[in-house]
């Protein structure tokens, strides 16, 4: 079941040896069930911090994050997380990397394998179940990471610059793939990116954070029709939206 996220006046400050570093300030927004929201901003604006708070990996110093109305206290199987690096275990095959979350939860082997097979098909990696991560390209490894995040059937998928380490072509293709996977799996998705074009192409809503501390300077609805093909980026509507986002980041 797709989850609903709510960031309620979230603020966060890191305390370093040489002083306090404010990362986020008064961040409030809602993510409707089944929608795809992208968070953009210059590097160091606290995007990843925000995502870690939503994932329950970090406790905010102010405010709270809610999932379906209840506070997020720690990592939950309702939330799947994809990092910038694929973070696969090099000693496990693709299939066994996928089933790791299920193994940790004592799901029986037959079910683990069935779910892995379904996800391998969903992310388009048929034939690679027995491959080791060293044998995969960067794009393929990231597909495995997305599939692993989905294996719990989480309801919410959080992606922290998942395509940041990939080349431009692979990145475009995986963006379209993500849309397909999102529509097929029916999750609520929050993705952090530093690419304006990628954000508008993918999202229902784009949230722009200002630099240090990160504050919301724009919460923009993207009314482009779906399904979206790659050439939507050349439309007039797309150009107008990216101009607004760019202006907000620069402000």
């Amino acid at each position: 079941m797709p989850g609903m996220l709510y960031a309620d006046r979230i603020g966060h400050t890191f305390y370093m040896p040489d002083g306090a570093l404010p990362a986020l300030h008064n961040v409030t927004f809602a993510v409707a069930p089944c929608s795809l929201v992208c968070v953009v901003g210059a590097s160091g604006c606290g995007k990843s911090t925000l995502l870690r708070i939503l994932a329950g990996l970090l406790k905010p110093s102010a405010g709270r994050a809610l999932l379906d109305g209840s506070p997020i206290e720690g990592p939950s199987p309702r939330v799947g997380m994809v990092f910038q690096k694929a973070n696969l275990m090099p000693w496990r095959t693709v299939e066994r990397n996928l089933t790791l979350p299920l193994e940790l939860n004592g799901v029986p082997r037959a079910e683990r394998e069935a779910r892995a097979a379904a996800l391998i098909e969903l992310v388009g990696l048929e034939g690679f179940a027995g491959a080791y991560p060293a044998e995969l390209s960067g794009g393929m490894a990231q597909r495995v990471a997305i599939a692993r995040a989905l294996i719990y059937r989480p309801g919410v998928l959080l992606l922290d610059e998942p395509f940041g380490a990939l080349d431009a072509l692979t990145r475009e293709r995986l963006g379209s793939e993500l849309l397909r996977i999102w529509q097929a799996s029916g999750n609520t998705v929050v993705m952090v990116t530093h690419s304006i074009q990628e954000a508008i192409f993918l999202a229902d809503r784009v949230i722009v954070l200002s630099g240090r501390p990160g504050e919301i300077v724009l919460n923009l609805e993207v009314p482009l029709p779906r399904p979206r093909a790659l050439d939507v980026v050349h439309s007039a509507g797309f150009g107008a939206l990216s101009a607004r986002v760019r202006a907000a980041i620069g402000a």
């Binding site: 090099p90 000693w91 496990r92 080791y132 060293a134 044998e135 995969l136 390209s137 393929m140």
Partner: peptide, 16 residues
């Protein structure tokens, strides 16, 4: 135990 390491010798052999 480290059979997986030997696969590293041909990186990208499966890559598309």
């Amino acid at each position: 135990l480290l059979a997986w390491q030997r696969r590293r010798e041909q990186p990208g052999s499966f890559a598309s």
